[in-house]
Every structure is written in structure tokens, then in C-alpha cells.
Computed example of a mutant assay.
Amino acid sequence: MSVNDAPYFSMLKSRMQFLNDRQKVLADNVANVSTPKFTPKDLDEKSFQKTLSRSYSTGSSGPGSIAPVNMVATSPMHINGTRVSTTGTKAVNAPDSETTLDGNSVVVEEQMIKVADTRMNYDVALTLYQKGLQLMRMASKRPGS
């Protein structure tokens, strides 16, 4: 079993991927601050939590194993695949508190707060990942060395 297969690291990697995707969406919002009728988007945290809790099963591989999340074809025109969803989230409209006369509802200050919050959450997940690796290294060393 590799370290990447451990549920602890798998969940942290999923969380970091979600936060990475959220940063991209927020950056797109800031880039469109002057686009008429643009509505900012954000990733749906609740759908990510549902996907993560659904993936965290007590299946035949033992308690705490991560079940794969497969793509679902909702139309006969879709390609059936076996790719695993990275975050299981979707971008949803998340208008900010104000809308300008041209219909744009991006408030740069609110987007920057979301960017900073996302960065802090990413830093926490990264620190937990690094500490987990340190613990694994410590556990794999011989006593007294």
C-alpha cells in the first residue's frame, strides 16, 4: 500500500484539489470585474462535502477506504468513461452584495476575502499533509536511529 492510498492523504488531496479549483473560479471572477452582466461564480462546498462523505465508505476494503467516484452519462450523446472525479463539485452563480448599472455583480473586495480564505484553508491542508508525511517517516524509522 502506498502512502497516497491512505484515506488521510486521499482526503487531504481531494480538499487541496477543491481549493485549487476554487481559486481558479475566483480568479475568473476578478478578471471579469468589468464585464457587463457578469455574475460571479463559486464552487459548491456542500456538493463537495456530499461527494466526499459518499466516497468515504466502509466497503469491502475495510473501514475508512475511499470508494472511486465514476463519471455518469446523463445523455446518450455523452461518452462513458472510467475517470475519477477530482472534487465532485460544480460552479454555481454566487452574486456578491452589489450589482452595478451594467449588470455586473462582482465586488472585488468580497472576491479578495474569498481568495484569502481559500488560501488559508489550502495552507492548513498542505501543513496537515506535510505533518502526516513526517509522522509516516518517523514511524518507518528504526528505534534509536
Score class of each variant (00 low, 15 high):
Leu26Tyr: 01
His78Gln: 12
Thr58Val: 08
Pro36His: 10
Lys46Asn: 15
Val25Arg: 00
Met77Asn: 12
Phe18His: 06
Lys24Tyr: 11
Val33Thr: 14
Ser60Thr: 15
Met77Ile: 06
Ser47Phe: 09
Gln17Tyr: 06
Arg15Trp: 08
Lys46Ser: 15
Arg15Asp: 11
Leu26Ala: 05
Thr35Lys: 06
Asn80Pro: 03
Gln49Leu: 11
Pro7Leu: 00
Met16Ile: 05
Ile79Arg: 07
Leu12Arg: 01
Met11Arg: 14
Asp21Tyr: 08
Ala31Val: 06
Thr51Tyr: 07
Ala73Tyr: 04
Asn70Pro: 01
Arg83Lys: 13
Arg15Phe: 11
Tyr56Phe: 13
Ile66Glu: 00
Phe9Lys: 00
Thr82Ile: 09
Ser60Gln: 11
Ala67Gln: 10
Asp21Ser: 11
Arg22Val: 05
Leu52Val: 07
Gly81Met: 02
Ala67Thr: 12
Lys41Ala: 15
Ser57Tyr: 10
Met71Pro: 01
Arg83Tyr: 12
Asn80Glu: 12
Arg22Pro: 03
Pro7Gln: 00
Ser75Ala: 10
Thr39Glu: 07
Asn80His: 12
Ile66Asp: 01
Lys13Asp: 13
Arg22Leu: 02
Met16Trp: 12
Asn70Trp: 05
Ser55Cys: 05
Val33Pro: 07
Asp21Asn: 15
Gly59Tyr: 00
Phe48Val: 02
Tyr56Pro: 05
Ser65Met: 04
Ser34Val: 11
Phe38Gln: 07
Tyr56Val: 02
Lys37Ser: 15
Ser34Cys: 05
Met77Thr: 06
Gly59Arg: 01
Asn70Lys: 07
Val72Ser: 09
Gly81Lys: 02
Ser61Pro: 04
Gly64Cys: 06
Ser34His: 13
Gln17Ile: 08
Arg54Asp: 15
Thr82Asn: 12
Asn80Gly: 10
Pro76Asp: 11
Leu26Lys: 04
Val69Gln: 13
Thr39Cys: 03
Arg22Ser: 06
His78Gly: 01
Gln49Arg: 11
Ser47Lys: 14
Lys24Ala: 14
Thr58Phe: 08
Ser10Arg: 04
Ser14Tyr: 02
Ala31Ile: 01
Pro68Lys: 13
Gln49Ala: 15
Met71Leu: 15
Ser47Leu: 10
Pro76Lys: 04
Ile66Leu: 02
Phe48Ile: 03
Asp28Cys: 02
Pro40Glu: 09
Tyr56Gly: 00
Gly81Asn: 10
Phe38Asp: 07
Ser55Gln: 12
Phe38Ser: 01
Arg15Leu: 15
Leu52Asn: 07
Gly59Leu: 00
Ser65His: 03
Leu19Lys: 05
Phe9Ile: 00
Leu43Arg: 06
Asn70Glu: 14
Lys46Tyr: 14
Pro7Glu: 01
Gly62Val: 00
Leu19Trp: 00
Leu26Ile: 05
Asp28Ile: 04
Ala27Trp: 07
His78Leu: 05
Ser65Pro: 08
Ile79Trp: 05
Thr82Glu: 12
His78Thr: 06
Thr35Cys: 10
Val30Thr: 09
Leu52Ile: 13
Thr51Lys: 02
